[in-house]
C-alpha cells in the first residue's frame, strides 16, 4: 500500500482544504457544516478544546481532594465502628495480606487518577509550545489516558457491592462514605477533560512549521 494513494506524501485534511467528520470519518469540503453521511456537526478541530479540557480538569482536581480526605467506607461490627479513606482501605488490605488486591485498588484509585491529571495538564500545556517529549510519545500518552480513564471507577463499584452485601443488622454493616460521590465525580470530570482534548493539536505544529 505504498505511495500511490497518498496525496503528496502525508497531508492533513485541513491542509488539503477538507474537513473530516469526527464521528464517522467521512471527508467533506471545508465549507460544509453538517456531515452528509451521519449528520454530525463538522469541525476541523474541536471548538474551544483547551478551554474545555482545563475547565473539566479543574473540576476533577477539586472533587478529587475531598475524595481522598473523607471516608470512603463506614464499617460497623458488633465491637466497633470504623471509617476508612481510600488510602486507609489500601493499608487494611496490606494488613490482611491481600497484596494483589491492595495493588489493584492503589493503582486504580490513586496512581491512575493522579497520573491522568498530570498527563492531561502536560498535553494541554505542551500544545503550541516547545515540548520535551516527541509528538509520538505525547500521542501515546493521550491514547493511554483515554483508555484508562474509565477503570478508575473500580473503587466506586467495590463500595457499592460491599454496601449492598454487608447489611447483616448489628453483626456487620458497611455503608458508603461521602468520599464515594466525590470520587465518582472526579472520575467523570476527568473523562470529560480527556474527551475534550483534540489529539490533532499535538500534530498541528508540523503544519505550522510547513507554513513558515
Amino acid at each position: 500500500m505504498a505511495g500511490a494513494g497518498y496525496i503528496s506524501g502525508l497531508t492533513t485534511a485541513r491542509a488539503a482544504g477538507l474537513v473530516a467528520c469526527e464521528r464517522c470519518g467521512q471527508v467533506h469540503q471545508r465549507q460544509n457544516e453538517v456531515c452528509r453521511r451521519c449528520g454530525a456537526q463538522l469541525h476541523s478541530r474541536k471548538p474551544d478544546s483547551l478551554q474545555k479540557v482545563w475547565a473539566w480538569w479543574l473540576a476533577g482536581v477539586i472533587t478529587f481532594i475531598p475524595a481522598n480526605i473523607y471516608p470512603m467506607l463506614l464499617t460497623s461490627t458488633l465491637v466497633e465502628r470504623s471509617e476508612s479513606t481510600i488510602i486507609g482501605g489500601v493499608f487494611e488490605l496490606i494488613h490482611y495480606g491481600s497484596y494483589g488486591i491492595a495493588a489493584i485498588v492503589f493503582i486504580a484509585s490513586i496512581v491512575i487518577p493522579l497520573l491522568k491529571f498530570f498527563i492531561i495538564a502536560y498535553l494541554a500545556l505542551s500544545v503550541h509550545r516547545h515540548a520535551l517529549l516527541s509528538q509520538h510519545r505525547r500521542h501515546q500518552l493521550f491514547v493511554f489516558v483515554e483508555f484508562i480513564g474509565r477503570w478508575s471507577m473500580i473503587d466506586i463499584f467495590v463500595v457499592a457491592v460491599l454496601a449492598a452485601l454487608v447489611q447483616l443488622d448489628t453483626v456487620a454493616a458497611i455503608n458508603p462514605g461521602i468520599a464515594a460521590i466525590n470520587f465518582a465525580l472526579a472520575v467523570v470530570f476527568t473523562m470529560f477533560s480527556a474527551q475534550s482534548f483534540d489529539p490533532r493539536l499535538i500534530w498541528d505544529e508540523n503544519e505550522a512549521a510547513a507554513d513558515d
Binding site: G5, L10, T11, V27, V143, P199, R200, W203
Partner: peptide
Amino acid sequence: MGPLEDLIACPHCDTLHNYSD
C-alpha cells in the same frame, strides 16, 4: 485527488489516507 468518498482522515492526527489502499 480521488473522490471524497475514497478518502479517510485519521481521527487522531487528521492525516488523509486512501480507503481503497
